[in-house]
Design a binder for these strands. Structure first.
Lengths: 180, 180
DNA sequence: TGTACATCAGTGAACGCGCGTTCACTGATGTAC
DNA sequence: TGTACATCAGTGAACGCGCGTTCACTGATGTAC
């Protein structure tokens, strides 16, 4: 049942993509490899033909999620434009294809070095893109604060059981970013 | 080996306290009941004499963590004072006794109804305390944004592998809150 | 107040289950001549 | 270009392990008289 090199590469890509969604949807620890391989259309036994461990996949899946996030932001993102879609109910209600940090932020803090490193690189890129290449210290500081606000707001808006409060949090964050 | 009612109540309290720390330290899913009971100085078999399920303990432990957090804030907290200790390296480096939302925010979003409800009540109290009982809509909005910024900043500061960047995030958030 | 009995907090072994990981096997793909 | 053989992607069963939960048991505590 050997597959061609191209087919194998495609399979690997599919596993990473499925993982990047599943981890954001259900959390890293709560997502099993068997479940994940099934989502990619495979049986679990083949996993180790592509990865050395679950941890390795976690790191790659996070990098992939971050890459997709950057792609969605476009070429010359502004804080206002990003905030508007980031702080939407659509984003809040679809963690699987949304921001990595809002989806599994607290789990990332406990992830292994390689994963945290991947997340760090992604975060730096995110901030740099929003700072628009500016080296102004104050502009960079504002971007860091804005990104914190966005990630925090979406995280809490997903916890809260009261839909009105949930929307209020997102709106308050957006308004605050618009003012600053 | 039956214990007196008072001793049993004290045991229960100890379990909840150990859980509230362990969950914040290691995450909810990653913390096992046996490990938890051991931390409370018991064997795991007795767990169900006190709780119906792990989920019930999770809800109570979150309520307890929130209660302790409110207590630490004192009577008349201001955004500035809270931000200063919340956005410190001390808080960042000690999730076990720190803010529930920063420690397990993304896991709370996937927790069961009772836990999310407990978290919601806690969050509302947190916001009300910071708003100082003000019913001004704009003041409340600013508090919601400030809380989002704080939670987001500590979450990311714990992920990032670069210590300089980690501190930069906390400082940027604090400065941003001081300006607003 | 003292005695007999029911209660139940805590122990430690055991339950089934799903986890991450390993392995023997299959057969199409890739390579060497 | 054709043939023989090595490679290896993917399958499915199995591994040991720790999980949440259950249970028979112990013996101090609480209750009833």
């Amino acid at each position: 049942m050997r597959k061609s090199r191209a087919a194998a590469a495609e399979t690997r890509r599919r596993i990473v993509e499925a993982a990047s969604c599943a981890f954001r949807e259900k959390g890293i620890v709560a997502t099993g490899l068997a479940e994940l391989m099934k989502a990619a259309g495979l049986t679990h036994g083949g996993f180790y033909k592509h990865f050395e461990s679950k941890d390795q996949l976690v790191a790659e899946a996070c990098a992939e999620a971050a890459r997709a996030g950057m792609e969605a932001m476009g070429d010359r993102p502004t804080v206002g434009a990003v905030a508007s879609s980031y702080l939407s109910a659509t984003h809040r209600d679809d963690p699987a294809s949304g921001c990595l940090f809002a989806a599994i932020g607290s789990e990332l803090a406990r992830a292994d070095e390689a994963t945290r490193e991947a997340a760090t690189v992604a975060f730096k890129r995110f901030v740099d893109a929003l700072a628009g290449g500016s080296h102004d210290e104050d502009a960079r500081r504002r971007v860091l604060a804005a990104v914190s606000t966005m990630i925090g707001a979406v995280t809490i808006s997903r916890i809260v059981t009261d839909p009105k409060l949930s929307k209020e949090i997102l709106d308050a964050a957006e308004k605050s970013l618009a003012e600053s």
